[in-house]
Structure formats: structure tokens, C-alpha cells
Amino acid sequence: MYKTILVATDGSALSDLAVTQAVELAAALHARLVLVTASEPFHLLSTEAEQIADTEDIYRRTMQQRADRILGAAAEKAAASGVPAVTVHVENDHPFEAIIATAERQLCDLIIMASHGRRGFSALVLGSQTTKVLTHSTIPVLVVRAEATPAERGAAA
């Protein structure tokens, strides 16, 4: 079945859920994980607060520290379950492209990502990296949604 699984994480609670499920799946399948997080490159002209306030060196150091923290936590989960994992930090203006490219380079046969499951106009306006990966990747994508409460599951029926 799946031997190399990429899981993208941004350190949010929802992506942590995706990491947890990816670790459990990888453990069950005796697969290895590729843990990836993406950062936007530094831009001289930007509306991002971090880039306006920082020099390029400070911004890069801050983004690397953030990536190390996010990937370190994910790698600890994998190690605790005996799942072999590698970590990858990529810079790209379009994270979905970096995620797909990393999955291809690492010969992944499954990508796991989280999604809020927005629909309709909000999905169109907000877009999501998960939606972009789904529409551009030739590698299968498993989407992890926020866990619904029993009341929410009943309302969806």
C-alpha cells in the first residue's frame, strides 16, 4: 500500500490532528513519513508584519526557528510511535507547489493535509493550500477535517 507518506503542517491545531493521523497510518502500514512545512520567502515590499519589521536575516532566522519548532514537534510524535520520519522546510510563495514538489522529490505515494472544509463563497474567496494540492497533484491526497462533535455530525445528516 503506501510506503512514503508526506504530511504538511503549519503547526496549527488542525494540522497537528493531520500529523497525528498520519503517524497512526504510517505506523499501521510500516511506512515512513516526510514532514514538511512551508514558509513564504522574504520580500522587500510586503504587507506581512514580520517582513516589514525585520531585515532579511532576522526574518529567515525567525522562519527557521518556527519551522524547527513545528517540525520538531511532528518528528517527536513520529519517533514516539516508532515511525521513521524526515523533516523538510521549504520556502515558496505558493506553499501548495512546494508541497507537491517535495512529495515528488521524496517519492511519496500519499499526501496528508488538514482542511477546515469551507464551502461555497468562503472557500472560493479564501482558497486553501489543501484545495490547491488536491487540484494540482497527481499523488493521492487524504484530507483530514476537524473532528466533529456528535451534534455537528447529526446536523450534517
Rank of each mutant, 00 (worst) to 15 (best):
M1F: 14
M1N: 15
L6P: 05
L6E: 03
V7Y: 01
V7R: 01
T9A: 00
D10M: 01
D10V: 01
D10P: 04
S12C: 06
A13C: 13
L17R: 12
L17G: 10
L17C: 12
V19P: 00
V19Y: 00
T20E: 08
E24N: 11
L25W: 05
A26P: 05
A27F: 04
A27H: 07
L29T: 04
L29E: 05
L29H: 07
H30F: 10
L33Q: 05
L33G: 04
V34W: 00
V34G: 00
V36C: 00
V36H: 00
A38Q: 06
P41S: 10
T47M: 10
E48L: 12
E48V: 10
E50T: 09
Q51T: 11
I52Y: 15
A53L: 15
D57W: 12
I58M: 15
Y59R: 10
R60F: 09
R61D: 09
M63W: 02
M63F: 02
Q64A: 14
Q65W: 14
R66Q: 08
R66P: 08
R66K: 11
D68T: 02
R69A: 07
R69E: 03
I70P: 07
G72R: 00
A78W: 02
A78Y: 03
A79G: 09
G82Q: 09
V83G: 02
P84H: 11
T87Y: 01
H89S: 06
H89C: 05
V90F: 10
D93M: 15
F96G: 09
A98P: 02
A98L: 01
I99D: 02
I99W: 02
I100F: 02
A101P: 13
T102E: 02
E104A: 11
E104N: 13
Q106H: 06
C108F: 08
L110Q: 04
L110N: 05
I111E: 07
I112C: 03
I112K: 03
M113Y: 00
A114F: 01
S115Q: 10
G117S: 07
G117K: 06
R118H: 08
R119L: 08
R119H: 13
F121D: 09
F121T: 06
S122C: 12
S122G: 13
S122L: 13
A123W: 04
V125Y: 07
V125M: 07
G127M: 04
S128G: 08
T130K: 05
T130P: 04
V133Q: 04
L134M: 05
L134W: 04
T135W: 06
S137Y: 02
T138E: 12
T138I: 10
I139T: 08
P140C: 03
P140N: 08
V141T: 07
L142R: 01
L142A: 01
V144T: 13
R145N: 13
R145S: 11
A146P: 15
A146T: 12
A148C: 15
P150R: 13
P150Q: 12
A151V: 13
A151D: 15
E152R: 13
R153Y: 15
A155W: 11
A155N: 15
A156K: 14
A156Y: 14
A157E: 15
